[in-house]
Nucleic acid binder design. Sequence first.
DNA 1: TACAGTGTACTACGACTCATAGTACAGTTA
DNA 2: TAACTGTACTATGAGTCGTAGTACACTGTA
Lengths: 131, 131
Amino acid sequence: MFELDIRSRKPIYEQLVERLKELIITEVLKSDEQLPSVRTLAQQLTINPNTIQKAYRELEIQGYIYSIKGKGSFVSPASPKPDTEKLLKVKNELIKLLSEAMYLGMTVDELFKIIKDLEASVGGGMENDQN
Amino acid sequence: MFELDIRSRKPIYEQLVERLKELIITEVLKSDEQLPSVRTLAQQLTINPNTIQKAYRELEIQGYIYSIKGKGSFVSPASPKPDTEKLLKVKNELIKLLSEAMYLGMTVDELFKIIKDLEASVGGGMENDQN
DNA sequence: TACAGTGTACTACGACTCATAGTACAGTTA
DNA sequence: TAACTGTACTATGAGTCGTAGTACACTGTA
């Protein structure tokens, strides 16, 4: 289910957060779908349950999942509220990264193409398109 | 010259790398311009010289500055070589971040606008002028 | 009711990173 | 020579990361 790099400088729980976020955003994991339990996933990945739980807690704080004691952890419905604070953070990071990409020689057209390609795969807020 | 958050979870030297990279990309710091010396900047920011040097070393590895023993550290000329490896890394990060932004409700038009606005302020690779 | 599964909380430990402090060496410039 | 520059190294304290173990509260089912 996952590819984690144990010896990466990036903490395991952060890698987990990234991966899961990706699966949620691309709707591989759908709304209210149950995630593997902390202990199950820990066993699958041969990783300590505490590390998994740290990742789940972070995802819950960020609003991507919700957990119910005794039942399990589930994917949150996609952006019911705009969450402007979070959006602003992402936007600022985006500006940094876009600047760097352009500085390194990426053209505006290339960037436009990337965005258009992503538009299809990302399950956005409104979803006012008919698939 | 800088605003650093000492108590941030993000290391000081990484904040420094980000800030300086930003100044170089936006050409506030121009090609071959000399950066403050390790000790001077350390004194200005009331930070240990070792921390500054760590940031400078990182910037040198990433190709944004070059250092000459006994003389100082200077801004590298903008992307003479494409550096496809680095570009690929940035592109992958960009895809992640763009996906997240769109998931949070940012529209394609908004993204296009951000890019167009940046186009002016970023000193890109070719700059279609011949120096 | 029991029991197995779920999330959650806490302590303790070793390994690692980060920032500081101090010292030292090599090169450049006036 | 003197004052500046980058660079390298050791040592220390604070903090993070991952692991290990234990414990508690809740849910669903036999």
